[in-house]
Design a protein around this nucleic acid. Structure first.
Ligand SMILES: [Zn+2]
Ligand SMILES: [Zn+2]
Ligand SMILES: [Zn+2]
Ligand SMILES: [Zn+2]
Lengths: 157, 157
DNA sequence: AGAGGCGATGTTATACTATATCAACCCCGA
DNA sequence: TCGGGGTTGATATAGTATAACATCGCCTCT
């Protein structure tokens, strides 16, 4: 799957789809899409970048939605555990899922200059599955993150 | 390349090779393989597991080699930046390189029960390179980490 | 209506991970 | 001998994450 994040696109679509996919899944599964959770997802969806929990907390605090770390971490845990957002291990940060609703094994391309995060899906996972199978290892979660320069920053440099 | 770490093997060989590869490279490149750096590498080499900086610091402290966090972090930075050890992002921890001397793009299989870390090399990286190339992204560093159950823990469960 | 359960939130405190900063030291070469 | 680069010592602080417990709202069962 082609990575989403670098190329210019109708980003309102990403936002709308991200929110509505979450809404739908929560309705289906009886999960509570509370104001804090919705707002945190919206904040993440505003751009294809990774944000730290404390960055998000700052926004919540300014809006009166919560002021202590657990508020942000709980919302993020909810979003991540249900696949509406992903944790970027390399940055200790979070980003909205670019393929909400799809069952997928994400891989990320992280620009170290503009911090844009593009999400690719599936393909890079295949070889890892193969290596794991050979070793008798059962993969429960895979972290695939590449750090470098996005096309724009590459051209600028 | 077949992952190193799960299967039983002559582990003294891993230790000896890890230390001597580092020794050799440091001699070649005029780097200082100081007592703290050597000892930290030895600690990491003792088992195919990831250790946190503070775990390592505890050992150093007990041996009188240093007692403050920067001591451990500096040694680890040195080892990682020269490829003698790797950082495991998923665990905020470190492990000795299983292919010292080889120019390689590591991928890790991390057991969530016994914390054993096996290092595979090269193959899982290919698809990621492909996805990146298509997107015009320049990879400078890739993190490929799978978390799950190793063969032993799988059988035990 | 009242009791109880459950999940979400509020709040405080604390644990864990990592780095900035500056002083001291050591080795080596000018 | 003097200086410079790199390493170490030591203090302080920044940044990330969770434990623990009180409270609240909502639904359900009696
Ligand atoms: Zn977008
Ligand atoms: Zn996704
Ligand atoms: Zn070994
Ligand atoms: Zn295991």
């Amino acid at each position: 799957m082609h990575p989403i994040g670098f190329e210019s696109h109708d980003h309102r679509h990403c936002i709308a789809e991200g929110v509505s996919a979450a809404e739908a899944r929560c309705a289906e599964e009886g999960l509570q899409f509370t104001p804090v959770r919705r707002r945190v997802l919206e904040i993440l969806l505003e751009q294809h970048r990774a944000m730290g929990a404390y960055d998000i907390l700052e926004v919540l605090r300014a809006e009166g939605l919560g002021s202590q770390p657990p508020v942000a971490y709980r919302a993020l845990d909810f979003l991540v555990s249900h696949g509406f957002a992903h944790r970027i291990e390399r940055l200790n940060a979070f980003t909205a899922c670019a393929y909400p609703g799809a069952d997928h094994a994400p891989a990320f391309l992280i620009c170290r200059l503009c911090r844009t995060v593009a999400e690719a899906s599936a393909a890079p996972r295949a070889q890892l599955d193969k290596a794991a199978a050979e070793a008798g290892f059962l993969i429960e979660r895979a972290v695939i993150e590449a750090e470098g320069l996005c096309p724009d920053c590459r051209n600028a440099a």
